[in-house]
Each structure stands twice: as C-alpha cells, then as structure tokens.
C-alpha cells in the first residue's frame, strides 16, 4: 500500500501524540503526580507507528513494559491511557493495570507487559487464533533487545516457524536492556540474524526512519497475511529517557542523549522528509502539534480530577464467573 497524504498526516499525528504523551508523563512523574513504575517510549515512535500503520483492529499486537507508544500507535484511547497511568477508575483498565499493563482487546492491543519476554508466546497464540478462525489477521510481537535474550522469545520464534503462523517479531533494539548495553548483552550482536536462524526472514531497519520501518513492516505483514509464515525485523533505535523514570542513566556518556536527539530523532527526520518532498506543509504539521498538545493537556487535567477506584473494585474481575 502506498501512503496517501492523509496516511502520512495520520502517521505524524500518532508519532507526535506518543512524543507529547511521554514528555508530559516525564514531567508529571518528576512532579510526583504519577504512582508506580513508568518506562517511556520517546525516541522510538517510528517503530510502533511504522508497523501499526500496516495493521487494523483485526490484527493483534503484544507489547512490553515500554508500551505507551505501541498502545497509541494501535489506536488506544489516549485519554483513557492517561487516566489509567494516574490510577483512576475510568482508566482504560479501571486503574488496575497501570503503565505496564495497558490493554484494549477491542483494538487488538493485547497488553503492555511487565515481564521482559512475556509477550512473544502470546502473540504466537494470537496468530494461531487468526489462522484457525480465519480472521485474516496477523499478530505482531513488539519486544526489545533485552527480550531477544529471553528463552520465551526463542521458543515463540521456533513454534511460529514450525506452525507457519502469521506473526511478526519486531525487536526494537534501543541499545540498552535496563542499564546494560547491547554490545555486552547480545552475544552475536545481530538480533535479526539470530531470528533468521530459526528459519524465518530477519531484516534490519533504521528505527528512526519511519519510511524504512513502514516498508519493512509492510513486507512482513503481507507475507504473514499471505500465509507464508513469520518474519522478524530488528529496528535499531534509541530511547531518549532512562530505563525507568528516575533512572540517572549513569551508564550513558554525558552527551549521548543530546547527540541522539540531534541526529537520530524520528520526528525531526519525518518532518524534514515530508516537507522537503512537498508531501505535507509545515502548517499542517504545526496544526497537528497544537491539536496533540491540547489533547494531552486535557487528558492530564481530567486524569488529575478523576476519582480513584472505590473499594468495591478491589476483588472484582479476578474471574469471569464470579464478577
């Protein structure tokens, strides 16, 4: 599928929404407004959006602890997400999941996941369901370089190949698993090659280049939809914040993040590309920026004002059969 101007504007809107969402959470967390553990996706927006622009509600994604971007890219309600992260009763998960467990199954979002390597087997299952129920859908497992070292990821990749399922393994290699660098922790240095060793196509892409991500994703999704089986894409990218909010990032050189923000920012690259090619006007993009800023402002304002869950919610929804 060729991207129309509307598609490009939508892609920009999603990426800008993720960036604004994460930047704002960074501020609110620092101000003590947000409880718990938060891991921000800023810097990686093109990965989630470049893939999800190829998907619809019929397709399912699994995500990670750094999941806000995947949720937004897959179409989760941004206000509901913000309320969830603030722990409020009308959050997307009723305040019971929080940042690490945002899910919206109606949108094909099978959950952020607090366990590194937690989602790849689940995504294989979603692909199995798509195959057996003939939905035409595919499943995408978003994972990181850290997850790529987990046995669950290996098992999921092998089973997907054995059963030839419509699943795509996206490995967002952001350079660090928590506070340990990929050069140390990934033995073979090449995650796509490792995926390929399981018997599926494995490719690399510059994760800061929306168009490269989109094209690689399109090929993988088409392959899966055609019943030709799984594939893997290693997206090389960086994160602009720490592993978790509050991480002093002593494992990064003093100028690392500044340099990356200057040279490796997917939003800057996207804006330059579409304006230089006269695909979109700067005014259009600026208007999106303004709309997104208002959306995030409103989401934070209403999240702060919203009520917490009442005690009646504590024991509800453990089981389907005893509500």
């Amino acid at each position: 599928m060729q991207l129309s101007r509307d598609d490009l504007l939508e892609a920009y809107r999603r990426m800008r929404t993720i960036r604004a969402f994460e930047d704002r959470i960074h501020e609110e967390f620092a101000a003590g407004e947000i409880p718990g553990f938060v891991h921000l996706y800023a810097g990686q927006e093109a990965c989630a959006v470049g893939m999800c622009m190829n998907l619809d509600d019929n397709d399912v994604i699994g995500s990670t602890h750094r999941g806000h971007g995947h949720c937004i890219a897959k179409g989760c309600d941004v206000t509901g997400m913000m309320h969830e992260i603030f722990g409020k009763a009308d959050g997307l998960c009723g305040g019971k999941g929080g940042s690490m467990h945002i899910a919206d199954l109606d949108k094909g979002m099978l959950g952020a996941n607090g366990i590194v390597g937690g989602n790849p087997p689940l995504a294989v299952g979603a692909a199995l369901a798509a195959r057996n129920l003939k939905t035409g859908g595919v499943a995408v497992s978003f994972a990181g370089d850290g997850s790529s070292n987990q046995g669950t990821t290996f098992e999921a990749m092998n089973l997907a190949v054995v059963l030839k399922l419509p699943v795509i393994f996206v490995i967002e290699n952001n350079g660090y698993g928590e506070g340990t660098g990929v050069d140390y922790a990934v033995g073979c240095k090449d995650i796509a090659a490792r995926a390929a060793a399981f018997g599926m196509p494995g490719t690399h892409v510059d994760g800061s280049d929306f168009f490269a991500v989109y094209e690689a994703s399109r090929e993988a999704v088409e392959r899966a939809r055609a019943g030709e089986g799984p594939s893997a894409i290693e997206m090389r990218i960086t994160r602009f914040y720490g592993h978790f909010e509050g991480d002093p990032q002593l494992y990064r050189a003093d100028d690392e993040v500044e340099t990356l923000k200057r040279d490796f920012d997917c939003l800057k690259k996207f804006r330059a590309r579409v304006t230089e090619a006269s695909l979109l006007e700067a005014d259009q993009l600026n208007a999106v920026d303004d709309q997104v800023a208002r959306l995030i402002d409103d989401a934070v304002r209403t999240a702060k004002a919203a009520p917490y869950p009442g005690p009646d919610a504590l024991e509800r929804d453990v089981y389907v059969s005893y509500p």
Binding site: L105, L122, G125, L133, E155
Partner: peptide, 16 residues
C-alpha cells in the same frame, strides 16, 4: 512449554 502455554493463553484471548 513456555511457547505452548503462552500461545494457548494468547489464542484464548482471541476466541479459541
């Protein structure tokens, strides 16, 4: 076993 249990769980959320 991880892939079996996880795939079964994932498939269960999607209608199998």
């Amino acid at each position: 076993e991880s892939a079996i249990m996880g795939a079964a769980a994932g498939a269960a959320t999607q209608g199998l």
